[in-house]
């Protein structure tokens, strides 16, 4: 008999599993090593389920045709992520307008193989007008006015977690992130990047702690969420994120030089995650180990 198959691949191979035009869901903590490989590969026409500045980067790098997002704020007092705002205003990206509850339900409908799930939040608003996929209907039990939320079906979900064994048994520190499990259950294929690959025995020691059983692929990338945080490992690199935000803001105003330099330095020149970390430097990384 063949031995059990390892699920471990590297970040370059992981990104090669994504094709132009696919729907890609991105969890939080943000799997930035994989996001950077998407940018490095120059993937195009993706439908991206994401929020915030990782979404902004993918748009600014030209990878995105359609956005499924409930929030694209910039942080640091910037109300709207700059590349998202510019691309949406110019009609360069399509937005599947939603909100947190609707996104969650859409992912759940996909996971459960249902044509829709009902939701009340958004009744009376413009959401079903600007997103015609959301249908107002009268429920057959009590006749209440509700929204029918159709399935949101990621081809690939990309997540970041603490540890996994080589068979894709993932354990988080402090529970899974944001909406990650909904994304995983809804997707055809889930790739989880982790801080550390641990022995199968370490997983078996506490199987109750396993949050994702048998992820399709595992990518070992310590510091892989940088410049975002990784629970239990390091804090967010706010100086780096602010630098990106300033560059993206300048680019949206017609001065793309700093942003192009950012993408060259951090996404296109480093061939692998290790090359990226060398670019960031050990000094900066160690500073992120202080609360």
């Amino acid at each position: 008999m063949e031995p059990r198959t390892s699920h471990i691949i590297d970040e370059v191979e992981a990104a090669n599993r994504i094709e132009n035009g696919m729907t890609v869901a991105i969890g939080s903590p943000t799997p930035m090593a994989l996001v950077r490989q998407i940018i490095r590969r120059g993937l195009k026409d993706l439908t991206v389920v994401d929020v915030g500045l990782s979404l902004d980067m993918l748009i600014a790098a030209g990878c995105v045709r359609k956005v499924v997002s409930y929030y694209a704020g910039g942080g640091f007092g910037v109300p709207v992520a700059p590349a998202f705002r510019r691309a949406a205003e110019r009609g360069e990206i399509e937005v599947w307008e939603c909100e947190e509850g609707i996104l969650t339900l859409g992912l759940q409908a996909a996971a459960q193989g249902l044509p829709f799930l009902p939701w009340r939040g958004g009744v009376g608003t413009s959401l079903p007008e600007v997103n015609p996929d959301l249908k107002v209907f009268s429920d057959p039990i009590q006749g209440e006015t509700l929204l029918a939320v159709p399935p949101i079906k990621p081809d690939v979900t990309l997540l970041h977690a603490a540890v996994s064994d080589e068979y894709g048994n993932v354990q988080h520190v402090g529970g899974p992130g944001w909406i990650d499990l909904f994304m995983q259950r809804a997707a055809d294929h889930t790739i989880v990047q982790v801080e550390k690959v641990v022995a199968n025995e370490a997983i078996r020691k506490d199987p109750w702690a396993t949050t994702i059983a048998g992820a399709d692929a595992i990518v070992r990338v310590p510091y892989g969420a940088h410049p975002f945080y990784s629970r239990g490992y390091y804090i967010q690199d706010n100086a780096h994120l602010k630098g990106y935000l300033d560059a993206s803001t300048a680019a949206a105003k017609g001065d793309p030089e700093t942003l192009q330099a950012y993408f060259a330095r951090y996404c296109r020149e480093p061939a692998t995650h290790a090359d990226y970390l060398e670019q960031i430097g050990i000094r900066r990384l160690l500073e992120l180990h202080e609360y």
């Binding site: 997002s69 409930y70 929030y71 694209a72 704020g73 109300p79 709207v80 992520a81 998202f84 705002r85 949406a88 205003e89 110019r90 009609g91 399509e94 937005v95 307008e97 939603c98 909100e99 947190e100 509850g101 609707i102 939701w119 009340r120 939040g121 958004g122 009744v123 608003t125 413009s126 959401l127 600007v130």
Partner: peptide
């Protein structure tokens, strides 16, 4: 959501609704 007559090319694109539609409902 944003400001402008044409949703596909808004004059000002807002950040999105976050969870406010559901929160304001309940």
């Amino acid at each position: 959501i944003g400001v402008g007559p044409d949703y596909a090319t808004l004059r000002f694109r807002g950040p999105g609704s976050v969870g406010t539609p559901t929160l304001s409902t309940h």
